[in-house]
Design a protein around this nucleic acid. Structure first.
Lengths: 195, 195
DNA sequence: TTTAAATGTTGACAGTGTAAACTTTTCTGT
DNA sequence: ACAGAAAAGTTTACACTGTCAACATTTAAA
């Protein structure tokens, strides 16, 4: 059913890969189905055999970007295996860095309508996407180490995620102009909160 | 020079107004120069007599949206003239509410490349846009009332703005799913921080 | 009142997403 | 092994987009 040697090898995978390449080369505005098809050496309607429409291809690319974003955060945790506080600070930095270095990715993972939800319920916070779970885990460890009242864990986790997310977007979108090291800025901000 | 009764009255102004109408009706994806021109009852290239290109019209519309956003925040301040803490909480709520009620506006004020910068320097934080200055002022008043060390005012102000901004975007973009009242959520989060 | 500038229109062009009809390759059931 | 179905890709077509050049008309300036 889902075998892999047809006319063009695995075109589906190829479209996603070249989509990412195009995205990095021309940004979200220069992104088009037809260009991706051309990069794959295929007619401009071939993508429709694999994706319902442009949006669906973008959604798949977004999944790919989510994976590399999640792994950037996971790297931050691995950098300080025993220190949840430093994990959080490092994650904040990499969160910003990731979006600043590849601002096109931002449009794909946070701006497209194919949102990846974070569920907030009475009992806690869960997500379909690794990135948030990684962050959430470090937060939990930090709260335990700092003996924070469990009743406020949820609010505090959300607060930190919002804070990091907000600053990352402000910086990546150049709404926030800082003459100096952005890494220092976000570090100060997180230290400010965590102490 | 800049008079106002030509062939079509003041087309420039009319384009911005109808641009906003179209935006509300069809969202950012359905937005096109030609549709705006049609709404003004004018040929599809007429806008080029007033704007260099599509981007420039969007930029002007964004300015308009910024004004109403700023005034939404100013209203929050006026609602609690003597209580900076409640001002901040109310601003957080209206920040979220504004973007949730009109998610299309979000693309225009925060996502377009015509970013409105917030300047962060050694001495303090300043912005060309009213919205941030309003927020910044309340924050300053709160810090004084709460006797917070002036050395950390800058970080704390940025922290709060980032937090509110981040949550507003997560909620408006439906990255954050909360079964309940979002206003309560952001209120809890801010109270959590301000206490 | 003549002339220039400002404003608006028509027509064209390349690029876009997508649908329909068709062709070719591969898979499946007998 | 073969017939037919399904999958994958192509061609053609269409409506829509932003933008440019050439032209027309109205208004302002000399």
């Amino acid at each position: 059913m889902t075998s892999n040697t047809y006319h063009h090898g695995d075109l589906r995978k190829n479209l996603i890969e070249n989509g990412l390449v195009l995205l990095n080369k021309e940004g979200i505005d220069g992104f088009s189905l037809r260009k991706v098809a051309a990069l794959c050496g295929v007619s401009h309607t071939a993508p429709y055999r694999h994706f319902k429409n442009k949006e669906e291809l973008i959604h798949e690319i977004a999944q790919e970007v989510w994976r590399s974003f999640s792994s950037a955060l996971a790297d931050a945790v691995n950098a300080y295996p025993e220190n949840p506080k430093l994990q959080i600070i490092e994650m904040g930095k990499r969160y910003v860095q990731f979006l600043v270095e590849k601002p096109e990715y931002l449009s794909f993972i946070f701006m497209s309508d194919s949102a990846i939800p974070i569920q907030v319920s009475k009992t806690g916070i869960h997500s379909q996407v690794d990135a948030f779970n990684v962050f959430s885990e470090s937060a939990k460890n930090y709260f335990h180490a700092a003996s924070i009242d469990p009743a406020v864990h949820k609010e505090k986790t959300l607060l930190m995620w919002s804070m990091v997310h907000g600053m990352a977007l402000l910086v990546a979108k150049k709404n926030l102009i800082y003459q100096g090291d952005y890494m220092e800025l976000i570090e100060n901000m997180l230290v400010q909160y965590l102490d």
